[in-house]
Simulated scan of single mutants.
Amino acid sequence: MNLESVLGTLETTGYVGHVICTEEAMVLHNSLLILQNENHFRNTFFWGRISGVERDYYIAFGYVTDALKGRVYYYSRDCVNWGLLPNPTQHAKKVTPFCNTKFQGDPALVIDIMIEREETTWDTPLYKPEIKKLKEEDRLAATVHMITNEAALVPRGALFTKPDGVVVENISFEGLTLLDSRELSSYQHYRMPTRKWNTNLLTRDDYNYATDFLDPLDIDIPEGCWQIQILAGDTIAIIKSLFWPGLYAYHVVETPKYGFVYFGSGKKCLDTAFMLLPSS
């Protein structure tokens, strides 16, 4: 959610039970405003909070020019002091899914992760148990990367790609209609597209490359891994990811207000695909 939406979570994610208290919201808003001014960001967003045993991690990001390729992430444990979140390493991306322990809240902590069986995610297959070390700061970076890449989303038309390829927020976006807000095809992944440039265009009759360059949610597998709820008298749409419990996106119907936020432990629900299998 953007900087201004932090003060109004009761009107957005409050419908699903996740809000930021007034005192915390004020501190968070002011510190993010300082972060934005110091880094000359065009816009700053509160990404969410990952729960830890001792302390929680607050995540924020901003960009100067490009809304997709230019994002810079920060983390804080007190909503005041922000540290640069490093780019996730390939080692962290591979090891993090096997880490079952909770975050402790200490970025310098190094944990041992047991890889017990042969895994195809490694460059060389493992035929015997092996211990991998992972720093919690790197684990945090990999977790934020995975959640953003798989579950962060925006309404169709919210982002606009310019002729030079730079992606910016669409200032002419006026929101989705109530009918469109009920359809998964009206929401897109907040990441660089992973499909060929013309694939997403061919799935729509009213395509426009400037706004339809991102991957829509309705192509995700398995079918049913997203849920849409229309609440508050058909005025707000809440989109939930079943793979990442705690990730909630919202869009106020027929207005330019939208965003997403994550409140959770940073664990992916790997049983989702089995829960969605049709009963025999």
Rank of each mutant, 00 (worst) to 15 (best):
I238W: 07
P155K: 04
I230W: 10
Q227K: 11
L179A: 15
Y73H: 10
D123Q: 15
P256L: 08
S181N: 10
L184M: 08
T148V: 06
T203S: 15
D215G: 03
P193A: 09
T177S: 15
L84C: 09
T124I: 13
V53Q: 12
D78G: 04
G259R: 01
P97C: 05
I131P: 09
G266I: 08
K196H: 13
L33C: 03
Y75M: 07
T9V: 04
R42A: 05
F173H: 06
L68A: 06
G62D: 06
F98S: 01
T44D: 04
A92I: 05
L28D: 03
D220R: 02
A60Q: 05
I115R: 03
E130T: 13
R139G: 02
K69Q: 11
R195E: 08
S241T: 05
Y73I: 02
T22V: 06
G14W: 00
I239M: 12
P193C: 07
D112G: 07
P129F: 12
C269S: 10
L85S: 11
L134N: 06
E174R: 15
D212A: 13
F213Y: 11
P97K: 04
Y209L: 13
A25T: 02
S186L: 07
E23C: 05
K133S: 11
K240T: 14
H91I: 07
G246W: 05
L179P: 04
A67F: 06
I239Q: 01
I131Q: 10
S185E: 14
L109F: 10
A108Y: 12
H18D: 12
H145N: 10
Y75F: 15
V19E: 06
D206G: 14
N149Y: 07
I115G: 03
M275Q: 08
A158T: 07
L202V: 14
A237S: 15
V253R: 03
Y262S: 08
I171E: 14
E150N: 13
F45R: 09
R191D: 06
L3W: 14
N87S: 12
Y75S: 08
L277F: 04
G266L: 02
A158P: 03
T235H: 15
T65P: 00
I228Q: 05
R204Y: 04
L7V: 06
A273Y: 03
E174N: 15
N170A: 12
S241E: 03
I221G: 00
I20A: 03
L247G: 03
S186N: 07
M192C: 14
I111C: 01
L178Q: 13
E54S: 15
L247N: 09
G175H: 12
M1H: 05
T161Y: 00
R156W: 05
V80I: 14
P216N: 09
E150G: 06
R49N: 06
N208S: 14
G70C: 12
I236T: 03
L270D: 09
G83L: 15
A141I: 10
